[in-house]
Design a protein around this nucleic acid. Structure first.
Lengths: 343, 343
DNA sequence: ATGAAAGCGCTAACAG
DNA sequence: CTGTTAGCGCTTTCAT
């Protein structure tokens, strides 16, 4: 009202000048802009939300705020969102379907502008809420057959299968799978791993290890120890996560297991440490950041009534082959098994 | 209104039954509770915020969503906040004072329940806004002399000084400091580092390296290369961040620099990888998670009109000495310079 | 302990 | 293109 008075127009014209400047005369728009500036007016998001039944909050449901994998995706979401007036709100489901549903209901009471949820394994109740949500919904990180609305991710099982096949092709035969806390995605990766090995008759469930705690470097080291107890002749691992792979690398160094000749390591996600490690560690590069960027971009396009493009996007992945699986090739860069003897 | 009708009371009684149950008769409270359950009522946060000039949002200003250091603190904040009806909203200042001010103003228009800001180096404008903010404010990560309101952190310069002294005490003499993007905290850590070395006449600015990009493992490796170009006889580094320390470790392994005898490494923060690395890396353990927990706990106490305890809390730090600086002590666990010759 | 009235600041809906 | 009217769902204030 103050702005309206100062600009000599009505309140609704101020509102329109802000939200749909195209529907206000150039002249009025200028006067409103000047008044806003002079008075230092800022809109009240609560009043806006109440009147329009729509907040400027984009709710994001992630299973973990611990896992650096989601961090990269969050970064992508933020990067895009920060250019707008929408605000990201993150809620942590802790890998619990019940918690996910509760948090989703919490978001829905806020009349979110959009919703971003992780994965494709929602409970029936959550799925129902999402399907009838009064806002755009993007599922991220995975892709699957029946999107609620939009979807950006890649196939985790394909990625693991390709990695497993790479290990086989590199000459490894007693290949293990290391995972941390088991969730829908890691299970899917395991099935890709299994598919990759079963064709060659190399799959052995005794070489599949999961844990009951989050992924970490120490866990990887511990799991290597456990693996070698179960099968002293295990000769390679596919780690569900690069943290684990680093832990395996360090433990190999500690035990003097030559990488890649005696033992091969493949990580998952390809965090930047993988390329720098000694030896550099083979990993599956996943488009985490880009998943976040595209998810938010699609969401914003829909909110702006623009064309969001393809609603389901498989962003793929890429196996990055490095020394940790470059077996028996003589002139390899110095690796842990090849570090110059020192002092 | 629906709930009120069902419970046979007025709307305001429902409101009171929810917010201040003590001021409603047991009987009315029970009827309201039943009605809420039967109708599946959930309060509208926008209407609540509009009517009361107070949202349930706790705004958090962090310089980076990239840096895993802040991630740990966020985790602590979330852990505590998740037990309440308040919601965390994170905004990313990108190490920019102007951006910080803009985002703070954005938060203020939301009438936040509380505000959490990183560090003690706010601009004058930001400081003014914070000092007169109509809600509790907690500064996190550092401690300093003039809190706006509450403060939880530790002394970064002391921590770096202790680490530097440890390197000196371990026998290193040409000690370098590696930092990524320079900010207020890293500058303060550098001054601690300098203080630790200057007493012994060992400080040399040629051995101080900063970068123009975020901390990462690859950056640490690159900076070691750069350092050795500048001073081939450098014999230790204090890394401003554990990522950098890992990069240095890998680069040392690659170059066959024996750790700890030829080269000592000390990290900062003590992420879990440090203890698992080969050799294990000395680092300064910092209470990141606990900073988050206590900050949110204090904030909630104030919001509940309870005693928040000491308003300024120095949570300290702890140097964790490991093999990467355990110089010339003969029987050391196998380290990169001591890995058994392989195959 | 409870209620009635008023209004938070904005926008939807309907004019004109 | 602009304005009027009527709320959005809750809490404040003042009564009782």
């Amino acid at each position: 009202m103050d702005v309206a008075r100062a600009a000599g127009v009505s309140a609704i014209t101020v509102s329109r000048a802000i939200r749909t400047p195209g529907r206000v005369s150039t002249e009025a728009r200028a006067r409103v802009a000047a008044a806003i500036r002079d008075l230092g007016y800022t809109p009240d998001p609560a009043a806006k939300a109440l009147a329009s039944s729509r907040s400027d909050i984009v709710g994001v449901l992630v299973p973990s705020v611990t896992n650096s994998v989601f961090l990269d995706t969050m970064r992508g979401l933020y990067e895009v969102c920060e250019t707008t007036d929408y605000r990201v709100q993150i809620a942590n489901t802790r890998y619990s379907a019940a918690e996910e549903e509760r948090l989703l209901r919490m978001f829905l009471t806020q009349r979110p502008a959009g919703l971003i949820v992780t994965g494709i394994d929602q409970s029936a109740a959550t799925a129902g809420l999402l399907r009838s949500a009064p806002c755009p919904v993007v599922q991220i990180t995975e892709i699957g057959p029946a999107p609620f609305d939009m979807m950006v991710g890649f196939s985790h099982s394909d990625a693991a299968r390709v990695a497993a096949e790479h290990l086989v092709d590199s000459g490894y035969r007693r290949i293990a799978f290391l995972g941390a806390r088991r969730d829908a995605r890691s299970t899917r990766r395991l099935s890709g791993f299994r598919a990759g090995l079963e064709g060659k008759g190399l799959y052995n469930p005794a070489r599949v290890l999961f844990a009951d705690r989050p992924s970490s470097v120490p866990l990887g080291a511990e799991q290597l120890v456990e693996l070698l107890t179960r099968d002293p002749d295990a000769d390679a691992v596919l780690c569900n996560n690069d943290d684990l792979a680093l832990g395996v690398l360090f433990e190999c160094q500690r035990r003097g297991l030559a990488i890649p000749d005696r033992f091969g390591i493949c990580g998952f996600n390809d965090i930047s440490a993988m390329a720098t490690a000694c030896p550099a560690v083979t990993s599956v590069q996943t488009p985490r950041r880009e998943v976040g960027r595209q998810a938010m971009t699609m969401l914003l396009a829909r909110l702006a009534d623009e064309d969001p493009g393809r609603p389901v996007r498989d962003l793929g992945f890429r196996l990055v082959r490095r020394d940790s699986t470059r077996r028996g090739q003589g002139a390899v860069a110095p690796g842990p098994g090849r570090v110059r003897p020192i002092a």
